[in-house]
Write a protein that binds this DNA or RNA. Structure first.
Lengths: 200, 200
DNA sequence: GTCTATATACTGATAGAC
DNA sequence: GTCTATCAGTATATAGAC
């Protein structure tokens, strides 16, 4: 059972043509990047008209923004689940990393778009991904662990980096094709040492 | 004494106008991104003619490539120094992280261009940054530490991620402005725990 | 709301003088 | 080698019919 919807349902809460457009945008932006993708290519891939996208998304950057917000919202929902299901920083952070690994395998393009895309270049108004609700909450799990005396009392920036840094590194290596096998298998080895380096 | 040349000398091994162009490119690409920067802006900033640029760099992507190769070569030289100066994985990897932190503070734009830029989008032929000589060597320091029995015998991808992941995370947070103080100060706390999580 | 045909603006690149 | 003036191609966005 995947924690994240599969490709066919990832955009399930929007209308059929909206979904088709967002899927095309995700696929094309990941493959060639925002600036190497023309609106005409998007509409051809999504099988909708130019008029449709300009009416519903305002302009090209509106496409990028809609996708960005959609994916971050999804991520936030997954964090809700984790927060509701687990009570300790140990379990929450472990679950976050497990979720990131699973997402990387089941939805590599979504992960790629969230983590890698230089959103500032085409979404000047967008907050840096690190300032985003989802990432702030990931960091909060760590901060709360420190307050609760579960995690060693060190600078929260360092603690956050130690907690998620190695995991994110593995995700990036996997997305870049440097690692050519699923990273789920690395979880236990990684988490054991990560948690050992942070627990009080 | 900086391990990395300061802004005024970073491009010291090229002619004056070359240097002016590379500086403009680095500055503009970091500020606005490759695709939001026109060749005209570059020549205006560098105070050279369009003809000069096209004669010496072939085309726009040639500018990006020249800068990329230049910075990676510089990075490689720094790794040479580290390899020559230190003999153990512990000292080498620690020195690498210290160097990355220092570079982040003294040459944020160079660091930003190396780490953050989606080079594939405008340099299709460029190797992924992770496949690059410099990064391969960073990983080799770790692999050799495992062979030497200095570092725990775990998967080298996991070991590499644990070694550099947190450091790179801090660099990214600093470059994104999420951390607003120099990260040099985090080194001791970070390194102590990083090494503890990996030593045999 | 939806579509197609069109225009405007800009950018990368070159031609050709010096 | 260096420069300026210019071209040709493309892409975003809109106008206006339905």
């Amino acid at each position: 059972m995947s924690m994240f919807p599969t490709t066919s349902t990832i955009f399930s809460d929007v209308s059929a043509r909206h979904r088709s457009v967002l899927r095309a945008v995700l696929s094309l932006f990941c493959e060639k990047g925002y600036f190497n993708t023309s609106v005409h290519e998007i509409v051809a891939t999504a099988e909708v008209s130019v008029g449709f996208v300009y009416h519903h998304f305002k302009d090209k950057s509106g496409l990028a923004r809609a996708l960005y917000e959609h994916l971050l919202m999804r991520m936030s929902q997954l964090l809700d689940d984790i927060e509701d299901t687990y009570a300790t920083a140990e379990h929450r952070c472990g679950a976050v990393i497990e979720m990131l690994f699973e997402l990387t395998e089941t939805e590599p393009e979504a992960m790629e778009y969230i983590i890698h895309a230089r959103h500032r270049e085409f979404l000047p108004a967008a907050k840096s991904i690190c300032s985003t609700t989802a990432f702030v909450r990931m960091r909060r799990f760590v901060a709360e662990g420190i307050e609760a005396g579960e995690i060693a009392s060190i600078d929260s920036n360092v603690a956050g980096a130690l907690m998620y840094g190695a995991a994110i590194r593995l995700v990036c290596l996997r997305l870049d094709g440097v690692i050519d096998e699923p990273i789920d298998g690395y979880f236990d080895e990684l988490w054991q040492r990560t948690w050992a380096s942070l627990k009080v």
